[in-house]
Design a protein around this nucleic acid. Sequence first.
RNA 1: GGCCCGUUCGUCUAACGGUUAGGACGCCAGGUUUUCAACCUGGUAAUAGGGGUUCGAUUCCCCUACGGGCUGCCA
Length: 509
Amino acid sequence: MSVRVRFAPSPTGPLHIGGVRTALYNYLFARKHGGTFILRIEDTDRTRYVPGAEAYIQEALQWLGLTYDEGPDKAGPHGPYRQSERTAIYRRYADQLVAAGHAYYAFDTPEELEAMRTRMKKAGAAAPKYDQVTRQYMRNSLTLPENETRELIEQGVPYVIRLKTPRQEEVKFQDEVRGWVKFQSGQLDDKVLLKADGFPTYHLANVVDDHLMDISHVIRGEEWLSSTPVHVLLYRYLGWEPPCFAHLPLILKPSGKGKLSKRDGDLGGFPVFPIEWKDPRTGEVYAGYRESGYLPEAVLNILALLGWSPGAGREILSLDEMTRLFSLEKVGKSGAKFDPQKARWINQQHLKRKSGQALAPYLRTELEKLGIDGYDDAYLAAVAELTREKAQLLTDLWPLSRFFFIAPVEYPLDVVKKKWRPEVRDFLASLAERLPDGPLSAETLETAFEEAAQALGVKAGRMKQLFRIAISGQPSGPSLFPAAALLGGGELKKRLRTFLTWAEQHLEE
RNA sequence: GGCCCGUUCGUCUAACGGUUAGGACGCCAGGUUUUCAACCUGGUAAUAGGGGUUCGAUUCCCCUACGGGCUGCCA
């Protein structure tokens, strides 16, 4: 049996990281088994449709490198891959279920349903549902005479098609991550399959499409676990073999309770969306991992570890490595709290593994924003090479790299005061004299540094931080001599003199 | 409330009946004879509780507690 899996988001807004993780696991499973990964858009709710959401999903997956083999923009043998374009198909199966006696027409208006619920609540039912018992008192093709049902339909009275759940049956299925899960059908309600507007609900569309698209494994979030028995029933009534199910543990809020939601990002200071999202209705902008300085491979790595572990202490993984190591057996059962700190650490690890060359374009972009040019790629790469060690996010790179392009004009007065001593002036001046005008190596610089210190009888170590401040304007930063050497002798001299002048003005002895 | 799922350091997790219960993030301490978010070393800290089963339970079973999901003509 060939592996075919799908990621089936609903375009009701931006994809959040829980969804991204579902996509990732599906992707990994497909690639691991040489299978097919499909993107299917579940846009069956016209009231919640958000323009731009589908494009957002595609852009996010593309940025992350989760390429799919079939999808709305990638033709395949089982299209179309947008459910709104498949309504006739669902209709056909809904009719088939009615004809077979497994589903029925229900004419109850929303008001009537509401009335039923409040009535039952008053009578003591905590969560009233349209089920084996309730349906006997509602307006549907089970309670109405056949000719009346036909008449209502002919008159164009709105109706839905509901699944006729059996009264007392055990419905069970084997979940790949949880083992056998059992439900009593009497606990189920008569789910709407086809809505009054002719669109299917998730349950119908999902089952029909998974079958028609030949899906072998349904890998989705745990929020679907309790509707799986309904799906199992549907497969049975349609005469189809159900796929394998695997329900993934949920990603939980870092603090407090509940599953991760839109708001949590703002509160916790971390993004919940892969890329930035502008709400077309409110104009609100939500931060994305991409814009916040995360590498796509790091985001994938962060998410992969939330609910899955390859064991053996492996944590920093590329997409290829994850693919090799992935298995549903190793997926955990319990919800995982999102840890923003660890997320940043993982990003940092990936950043450290990047070459300066690969990071250079990011610096280029920052320079362009400021209208600075005149630096070649090799220089940018060398800078990135030095600063990436200290960066956790891509966005940390520029603040760390800035002084390689822009000479400091201000210095942290308090630190300078603390470290200042009379011989510093002479030392820096002497160092400036010893430097060549052109390029220099870190070794040459260090030698000159030592010599200058010796000549004046001061400890080289004591001079280092002020030297750093003089050339970068910052009390800390990348490895000192390599960084300074990269600036070149001429530039160093200039900066030392500027600093000495500044010191004269700001330090009264 | 009902149904379903879950429960190992603060967090993510490893250990598929026998380990001094391991790793990672975080935190703390020390080192790196300048700083430092980097690096190195060390430390801190867990099997929810109670019953079984077993020679032996983190691991299997039951109960309780707690957490989560679902309970829509939303997905």
